[in-house]
Every structure is written in C-alpha cells, then in structure tokens.
C-alpha cells in the first residue's frame, strides 16, 4: 500500500494514526515516528558545549568525545526505531461498563522477533508500561473513561518507547475499530422493586410457581446446626435423644418473577429512568430473581443468568 505525498505528511497521521482497523497492525517505518525528546535536545546542547570547549581549547580529545556523543545520538535513532519495529498489535476483547467507569480495551501485542522490547508505553487515557521478552505475546488492558451510554469507540492508542537512552521517543499512533458498550449509570438511590402483577407473571410462565417464601417447601435432609438457623427448623426429636443439634433442611427456589417496566419507572427524564432500570436489573440479578423487562420497542421475557443480564443492560444502553 502506498500513500500519496499529501497523505503521507498529513498532520493527523502523526497524532491520530491511520484509518481504524480491526485487523492486526504490524509496526513498520510507515507507522513509527521518531522525534527527539526534551532530554534529547538537552543532549544536543551538551554536544554543542563540548564542541565549544574543544574549539576554544583546540583540544582534539574533547572533539573526539563530542563526536562520539553526537554519533551515539545518531545511532540512538536506529535503536529507537528498533524498539517498536516489527511489533504486531491486535485488538482484543473489550468489556462493557457502566457509564462513568473506565472501559477496558484489550490490546494484544506480539513480539515476533528475537529481541527484547524494554519499557514500552501504551497509552489511551492512562499509560501502561510493560516489557516484552523475545517472542512474547502480551495482552494489556487500556482504560478510557466513559461519559455516555451507548457504543463507545476506542480512541487512538499510542504505543511509544524512549529506549535505549531517552533521547528519542519513537511512537506509533494506532486506531482500532474496537468499541465497547456503555451501560447507563445505575441509580444510587435505593428504590424498591416495582410491584409485580402476579397474574401477569403466571400468564407469562405457567410452569413456574410464584412463591415468595424461601427455603420452606420441601424437606430434604438434615445438617448440623449452625448459629443463625431458625429455631423452628431444629430437629428437636434428635436433640431430645441426645444426638446433638440438627437443622432440618428444606429445598426449593423462590421463583419470583419480576417485571421491570419503563413506564412505571420513576424519573424525570429518559436518562434517570434508564438509570433506575439499570439499577433494578443489577439488583434483580444479584438477588437471583427471574426478571423480565419492557422498554418502548423492546420486550425481554423473564430470565436470569449472565446472558440475560447482559441482554437487558444492552437494551438499556442502546435505548
């Protein structure tokens, strides 16, 4: 692939990188840029000073020292390039987050060569430092703060290194097509679940009983008494025979079906309602309830489990 001159020197290439891609990116001369750092400029001043001393005192050894440092400066450019060249970057998974949290994007960095890569820095919002040994593949997670629910596209990731001497910074701006889902921010206030209409629930899933009491239906065994077990569950007969304290155990799940309805959600505007719904979904999942979900345009049958939970949150995020 060749670039036209105009494209080649367009400013955004140096900062924002080339077009976003979801394929792996191999760092080559086209993507790596090198400029001296502040320290590098200081080094130039040092060399100039040495040349001045050499000139004034007409001292060949000082000249030689200045020339060696100048050559070191020059050679470092090649080393800087080498610190990034050949690395292969691929976008990895990205985890969905709640708005306001930092979204994590995984980037897989592969070092296919037999050279060590020291002190690489990958930065999105914050910078991550890492080192790759020969032929190492590493997955790093970069975080970006999210503000709004919905799809969040990853910004330009900058991979840079100042190895070996810190005189030059080699960097490569990379744009990936990765995006992550940002769920609405869950409401902090605790508002109890909306009343579930029993009829509706039973209508929806006739096979499941709607029982609100927990752990009191079927007896299935005994276990040793532990502090906190309800007194009425104690197997008194056994105790009376001097065999110790046992609790009767009862099985059965409480299969409450919860319907979360957008129209019945308190809130002044869409965002507040979504935020509250989000909160309920989280609470319902944590409580192990069966919950269904309606927002305008979307209706999700009651369910539970990670997949269902994510489905609900996704619907909220993309509302």
């Amino acid at each position: 692939m060749s670039l036209s001159l105009k494209q080649r020197f367009h400013r955004s290439r140096f900062i924002k990188g080339e077009k976003a891609t979801d394929k792996s990116i191999t760092l080559s001369h086209r993507r790596i840029f090198i400029l001296p750092t502040q320290r590098g400029l200081g080094f130039v001043i040092l060399i100039t000073l040495l040349l001045l001393i050499a000139f004034v005192y007409n001292n060949n050894m000082v000249y030689l020292l200045a020339f060696i440092l100048a050559s070191v400066f020059f050679v470092t450019i090649l080393h800087s390039f080498k610190s990034l060249a050949g690395l292969v970057l691929t976008q990895g998974h990205s985890q969905a987050v709640f708005s306001g949290e930092a979204a994590g994007f995984d980037i897989v960095i592969n070092n296919p060569n037999n050279v060590q890569r020291f002190n690489l820095q990958a930065s999105l919002d914050r910078t991550v430092n890492f080192t790759l040994v020969e032929q190492e593949k590493k997955s790093i997670t970069l975080y970006a703060v999210t503000q709004q629910r919905g799809w969040h596209n990853i910004d330009t990731v900058t991979l840079s290194s100042t190895y070996p001497l810190g005189l030059f910074r080699a960097w490569s701006p990379l744009r990936f097509a990765a995006k992550t889902l940002v769920y609405p921010k869950p409401n902090i206030e605790e508002i109890p679940f909306p009343e579930t209409e029993v009829d509706q629930a039973q209508e929806q899933s006739p096979t499941l009983a709607n029982k609100k009491t927990k752990g009191s239906d079927d007896f299935y065994g005994l276990k040793e008494y532990q502090a906190g077990d309800p007194i009425k569950h104690i197997h008194w007969k056994a105790f009376a025979k001097g065999q110790g304290l046992f609790s009767k155990q009862y099985g059965g799940e409480s299969l409450v079906e919860l319907w979360l309805n957008y129209d019945q959600t308190p809130g002044n505007n869409d965002e507040q309602r979504l935020s509250q719904l989000c909160r309920w979904v989280i609470d319902a999942e944590n409580a192990g309830l069966l919950y269904g979900f309606t927002i305008p345009g979307v209706k999700l049958e009651p369910g539970y489990g990670k997949a269902h939970y994510e489905k609900c949150l996704q619907a909220l995020a993309l509302f």
Binding site: T207, L208, D218, Y220, G221, L222, A238, K241, Q243, G251, G252
Partner: peptide, 22 residues
Amino acid sequence: TSDILPADIIGASIFDVENARF
C-alpha cells in the same frame, strides 16, 4: 425436573431408628 433436590441425586443420611444413628 424443576423440583429435583440434590439429595435426590446424591442420596441422604436418614435416621435409622433401630440402630439409633444416621
């Protein structure tokens, strides 16, 4: 089934009245 309990699968300690132990 939806109402099967762990004890139904694994088995359970049942109090044996004759031997007076589980």
